[in-house]
Computed example of a mutant assay.
Amino acid sequence: MFQRRPTVKGDLSFSNPAVRAWLYQIVAVAIVVGIAAYLIHNTVTNLNNRGITSGFAFLDRAAGFGIVQHLIDYEQGDTYGRVFVVGLLNTLLVSALCIVFASFLGFFLGLARLSENWLLRKLSTIYIETFRNIPPLLQIFFWYFAVLRNLPGPRQAVNAFDLLFLSNRGLYIPSPQMGEGLLAFIVAIIVALAVSAGLFRYNKTHQIKTGQLRRTWPVALGLLILLPAIAQWAFGAALHWDVPALRGFNFRGGMVLIPELAALTLALSVYTSAFIAEIIRSGIQSVPHGQHEAARSLALPNTVTLRQVIIPQALRVIIPPLTSQYLNIVKNSSLAAAIGYPDMVSLFAGTVLNQTGQAIETIAITMSVYLIISLSISLLMNIYNRRIALIER
């Protein structure tokens, strides 16, 4: 039998496994650096041969085109840098809306799949198996072309109390305008939340020591209503509302949610909620059945059992795949370019790239933004996952 030669301390020969491991890593790093240097040199050479300037100076040039939806003030004469901010905010808006809606819808669908009601269980199963097996781009087309574009025009818009108007131009809603009492209103809400949080911790400590349960939510709700109301009465209205009105062929005033935003939000929320529902269902089923029986033996109601016993344990299984679905929402939001929603891809990697020819810079900025957003979501979800983790002692 062959015997492995023992490693001698200080042996720098190639037969030493540690030396070989370091050499392999050094060679691998050198190859990667060499390939990167070649690609960079080749790119710079080709750009110089074609007379294409590189750099980010184009961000200070005037864009010269309009944007349908912008969360900040924007005019055609603004710079490409401001276009970048507008596209970033639009991407964050649709991503945040889809994450919230998909989470709520997926949670209730996941519970419905475990319901004892036969009809509710079958309907949720049909929903999940239907929408998660249709590509998201086709769902976006369905909501945009088949539903929202077939709504009536502005003159025949669906009217709700002369405040909300729904047409094929979008959903027009009142727009909040800052009032003189806004600062006092915000301070009142912060104080109410701080007092409610302190009261909740005090009641929790009291329950642990004495076993007596004190409800916090009535006092918290009263503070959240009473303190802002007093602030409004003493310092004036916090907000004024600009109500949309039909003038000519379209509505003026207020705030509009364009059909592209609605279609993208509906499609991605419905699509992702089907996957989240299965994550919720599997997470709940991963909790040992003995936990259900123990809660039932204590005569706990089903809602209390689910909220206090099952869900906290199921979160250990739910959070990691749920993070992946949130990341998928952010990445799938780039499909907005298919229907003309002004997000990062449509504006910066589309219109700006075509006007300036700065392909490397625009694509690099867009990729970096999506990378930073995804890493930020992963970081926040991992922090939350560590906080709720059950530590076995």
Rank of each mutant, 00 (worst) to 15 (best):
F2T: 10
F2N: 10
S13G: 13
N16Y: 05
Y24A: 15
I31E: 09
T43E: 15
N49S: 13
I67N: 06
Y74S: 05
V83F: 03
V86W: 05
N90T: 07
L92W: 04
S95N: 04
L105G: 06
L105V: 10
F107T: 10
F108H: 03
L111I: 03
A112L: 07
L114Q: 03
L114P: 00
E116C: 07
N117S: 08
R121K: 09
R121W: 00
K122R: 11
K122Q: 12
S124F: 00
E129W: 05
F131Q: 01
P135L: 00
P136H: 07
F141D: 02
Y144L: 03
V147D: 05
V158F: 12
A160G: 00
D162R: 02
F165W: 05
S167N: 06
N168Y: 02
N168L: 00
R169Q: 14
G170F: 01
Y172T: 08
I186G: 00
V187N: 02
A188C: 04
I189F: 05
L193P: 06
L199K: 03
F200N: 14
K204I: 06
R215S: 14
L221W: 11
L221M: 13
L221E: 08
L224D: 02
L226D: 07
Q232Y: 06
W233Y: 15
A238Y: 07
A245D: 12
A262H: 01
T265N: 04
A277V: 03
E278T: 01
S282K: 01
G283K: 03
V287G: 00
P288C: 01
P288T: 02
G290I: 02
E293Y: 08
A294I: 10
A295Q: 08
R296S: 14
P301T: 13
N302C: 09
L306P: 08
Q313D: 08
I319C: 08
I319P: 08
I319H: 06
S324D: 14
Q325D: 10
Q325P: 11
K331V: 12
K331I: 12
N332A: 15
S333C: 13
I339L: 07
A349P: 07
V352E: 04
L353W: 06
N354P: 00
N354R: 05
Q358P: 04
T362M: 08
L371Y: 15
L375T: 07
M381Y: 07
I383C: 09
R386T: 09
I388L: 13
A389L: 10
I391A: 14
